[in-house]
């Protein structure tokens, strides 16, 4: 059985000029694997992650046919049951550590808290574990970092602290939202290998959100490509360069490549037709007035 199955996920925000559909019918499944999600800024990657944890704040509206974790539909859980899922079973590395860490709480305190929430560990054990975790994400002066406040940390340190904090309760699924964007290549490799090991050894499922196509194709097993709130293409990571969808091809063509150098990088072309994948619907008058709303959940395989 798959760890996680997401079926027809929608996230909407009511605005003054009608509802804004930020995520429109996303479906995918996650096994004990590394699933990459790529897509341009604003394509709904982060919201998809948050919606799975049921952390979209009102007035945002989340609907889905199902979001099931090992067969259990998260949408049916009470808030109290959901809290047992968060952190312990599904955890999420938040995108921007600058804003995602509590500025008035020591780093160590924040990591310890993530651990002791789901274990009965003593403070001392929790601290030892937190230090161990900080070292695991290759932070050398872990004792100092433990006592530091977030504003004393660099962006890359923040990301590693975030990763340590979210891995410490040993989740079954980790949603990592651009976890390595501020890290230099050597540290990035190290951090990725930690996540990789958890996937291999403990059968963790990893959702790896990134802008970096090369990284995703090298690191992940499968890739979802999102565009305008929907999944336009799913493929094996090593086949990414053979992707068929015009948006994916556009993305690939706008990447600099060492093997086939080109004089000029291509500019990404966009097509409104990608926003809906059932072209017939576009002809209906009510859809013309609200072009963002599509009634299908079909997904390009």
């Amino acid at each position: 059985m798959n760890l996680l199955e997401v079926d027809n996920l929608h996230v909407q925000f009511p605005t003054r000029s009608g509802t804004f559909d930020a995520v429109r019918g996303v479906s995918f499944s996650l096994g004990r694997e590394r699933l990459g999600i790529v897509g341009e800024s604003g394509s709904g990657k982060s919201l998809t992650g948050r919606a799975i944890l049921r952390l979209i704040k009102p007035p945002g509206i989340v609907t889905a046919d199902k979001i099931s974790l090992e067969g259990e539909n998260l949408l049916d859980l009470s808030e109290r049951q959901m809290r047992k899922v968060r952190g312990q079973r599904i955890s999420m590395v938040m995108q921007d550590p600058k804003f995602s860490l509590n500025p008035v709480m020591r780093v160590g305190e924040q990591i310890v808290e993530a651990y002791s929430q789901h274990t009965r560990a003593s403070r001392k054990e929790a601290k030892a574990k937190a230090i161990e975790m900080l070292e695991a994400v290759s932070i050398r002066d872990s004792e100092r970092v433990f006592r530091a406040y977030p504003h004393e940390m660099s962006g890359g340190m923040g990301q590693r602290i975030m990763i340590a904090m979210m891995l410490i309760p040993n989740p079954q699924i980790l949603i990592a939202d651009e976890p390595t964007s501020a890290l230099d290549v050597s540290v990035q490799t190290q951090v990725l290998s930690i996540m990789d090991r958890l996937v291999q050894e403990r059968g963790m499922g990893l959702v790896f959100i990134s802008h970096d196509l090369n990284l995703v194709s090298a690191f992940c097993d499968r890739v979802l490509i999102m565009y305008g709130g929907r999944v336009v293409e799913t493929c094996r990571a090593d086949q990414l360069y053979n992707a068929k969808h015009p948006y994916t091809q556009g993305l690939l063509n706008s990447l600099p490549r060492l093997d086939t150098p080109v004089n000029r990088l291509q500019v990404l072309q966009r097509d409104d037709a990608w926003m809906t994948d059932n072209p017939q619907l576009d002809d209906k008058p009510d859809d013309l007035t609200q072009p963002h709303i599509s009634k299908t959940d079909a997904e390009t395989p």
Partner: peptide, 16 residues
């Protein structure tokens, strides 16, 4: 309450 770190705290499964 709108800040990101509050969401982080919720991601950890902390009580309201």
């Amino acid at each position: 309450l709108n800040a990101e770190y509050v969401t982080t705290a919720r991601v950890k499964g902390l009580s309201e």
